[in-house]
Design a protein around this nucleic acid. Sequence first.
DNA 1: TTTATAAATGAATTTATATTCACTTTAATT
DNA 2: AATTAAAGTGAATATAAATTCATTTATAAA
Lengths: 189, 189
Amino acid sequence: MRLKDDTKINSIFKAATELTSEVGLDKLTMSSIAKKAKVAAGTLYIYFDSKEQLLNELYMHLLMGGTLSILPSIQHLPLKKQFQVIWSNVLKFRVSNSSEVIFMHQFRYSSYVSAESNKLDEQFISFINNLLDRGKEELIVKDIDNDLIIPMLYGYANTLARQLSLDKVDVTDEIINQTFSICWDAIKS
Amino acid sequence: MRLKDDTKINSIFKAATELTSEVGLDKLTMSSIAKKAKVAAGTLYIYFDSKEQLLNELYMHLLMGGTLSILPSIQHLPLKKQFQVIWSNVLKFRVSNSSEVIFMHQFRYSSYVSAESNKLDEQFISFINNLLDRGKEELIVKDIDNDLIIPMLYGYANTLARQLSLDKVDVTDEIINQTFSICWDAIKS
DNA sequence: TTTATAAATGAATTTATATTCACTTTAATT
DNA sequence: AATTAAAGTGAATATAAATTCATTTATAAA
């Protein structure tokens, strides 16, 4: 008997990601994914139960391979340095993977998103939460509810990366330093 | 002869806005808009050429009635105060008009958005640009490219307002002050 | 009142796209 | 090499939603 071909899932994911960044999530069709991935439309249903499942799997795949894997084991570094490493990684990753970021952004606010996808998202938030709490203990982070701080980091990263990608600016060290100084001044006490 | 009924456009806009916040832009259908607005499906096509036009008109309507009208005539106030007034207005408006904000957010990143809608958007950005430039002249704002600063303000406002709405937190003066201190520390030199 | 004209209706049509399925191909197992 | 079970195909089907249009209704003007 024949076995499933893992590289095929990659082509499917790649096709869906690129198409979304080209035409938008709302114009993304199963046939166009199939065509771009060079498989038959029916094949998509061997690997995924539905369009909804395909998109959720893709989202979780990108979240794990990208944003989450970025959280390095940097527990030993001083807090500010940890934030800086994360900021730099997130920004560089996002700008050099702009199709992925566009897909994630559009998917994140669509009605396709499942409970499971949502849960995975919270892992990243939770990591930042811990970092902020420690910063407050060390008295170097403003004593403001994390729920009021995190949207700044999250919203800024999203919006900035999207803008830099669209403008095809490449992320120099100067840009990283300048934008990080904005972030850090925002949250430091 | 019979005349068009302006209140009908309002019901249509209201229905489309609320439905988007309930089910998402990608599940928004012309029939559901018609049903909720208590008009026949065909009636929508008397007022609008297409779904695309309806959504763009709605977006521009919200942008003008909401975000843009928020920019007050406060030219006489000191710069920091101007930012504070705008921040407070934007936040309060966004949280108390969460359906509108959800619609605008989902529409903004959809493929429906027309060149005209895009252009209107830039008015707001341009106002902030001027404010930042003056801040730099007065040496109270960081000497960093506006394109690196604005995404912070814009992304933070979006993400924060969305979060506050979802959590049904109401915008107290304390929240406004705390979040504004985050913004201001971020951009002040 | 009557007339004329445009608004309003909603069922019918068109169009688009997710999903299925009868069939073909592939490759692991015997 | 033969067997067989699952992958792969793509045209056909089902479904859903945008748009049209023949008809009815409301109202401004005569």
